[in-house]
């Protein structure tokens, strides 16, 4: 009882801090310093139509590298924690509904296609590697729901993860030698704005990220699914 009261008091106190921020907030009338720069210069400098993608992949590429590492780390640790090794429990097959099985067979390829489309076109339309990778992962999840005993090759997933990561780092380093700096996308020609093959290395990077994210989510889902005792 007292605990709830204190919790309420704390939440109210934090809420009042938030309220202060809320009521002190006035939206900008014009773009601020950095936003203006991005608005004006992205198309010309980087050749990407999706400004958010340009920021994520190139301007703030170091953040994305860190973020990708976060997922890698999470997947590794989840794998480490939940590793069953050779002691996987014997699991008996469970009947799932006809609707789910058929639906899966129909939908999963479409989902995977959508995912690939999203991350390949990241520099042109809303979306990108992370979004595409998440879509792919939802496809994987559907597979797992339809067939709980489905086994994914962990070594394949690890290989995709690691190779994608290594290539990403190497592309970044290539930027040091071939272009203006680490993770500069101008190591490849910029092409015309709006084309698929434009924006230098951004589509390449985002594709790698898409694969990596998809693989990592798959790894996490598989690890969590294998813990279930059926």
């Amino acid at each position: 009882m007292i605990k709830r009261f204190i919790a309420l008091a704390l939440v109210v106190a934090v809420g009042s801090v938030f309220a202060t921020l809320l009521f002190g907030y006035t939206p900008d009338a014009d773009l601020n310093l950095t936003a203006r720069y991005y608005a004006e210069r992205t198309a010309a400098d980087l050749g990407a139509a999706n400004i958010v993608t340009a920021i994520v992949v190139t301007y703030r590429g170091l953040d994305t590298l860190g973020e990708v590492t976060v997922l890698f780390l999470s997947a590794s640790i989840v794998g480490l924690v939940l590793a069953k090794g050779t002691h996987a429990p014997h699991r008996t097959p469970v009947p799932v509904g006809e609707l789910l099985t058929t639906g899966t067979r129909f939908l999963v390829p479409l989902i995977l296609l959508l995912g690939v489309y999203v991350f390949v076109n990241g520099h042109l339309t809303p979306g990108g590697g992370f979004q595409g990778g998440a879509i792919i992962a939802s496809g994987i999840l559907l597979l797992l729901l339809a067939d709980p005993l489905k086994h994914f090759s962990h070594s394949l997933i690890s290989a995709i993860e690691s190779l994608a990561g290594i290539f990403y780092v190497m592309i970044g380093l290539a930027g040091l030698f071939l272009a203006g700096g680490f993770l500069d996308n101008r190591i490849l020609p910029l092409g015309t704005l709006g084309n698929l093959a434009s924006a230098g290395a951004i589509p390449l990077i985002y594709s790698l990220i898409g694969l990596k994210v998809g693989a990592e989510f798959a790894s996490i889902l598989a690890a969590l699914s294998e813990t279930e005792e059926l």
Binding site: D28, L31, N32, T34, A35, Y38, A39, I51, V52, I55, V56, R60, D63, T64, G66, E67, V70, L71, G128, F130, V213
Partner: peptide, 14 residues
């Protein structure tokens, strides 16, 4: 402003 959108992408993944 495109910057918050880029930030939130990272925040979601984290």
């Amino acid at each position: 402003d495109p910057v918050p959108q880029a930030l939130v992408l990272t925040a979601i993944v984290i």
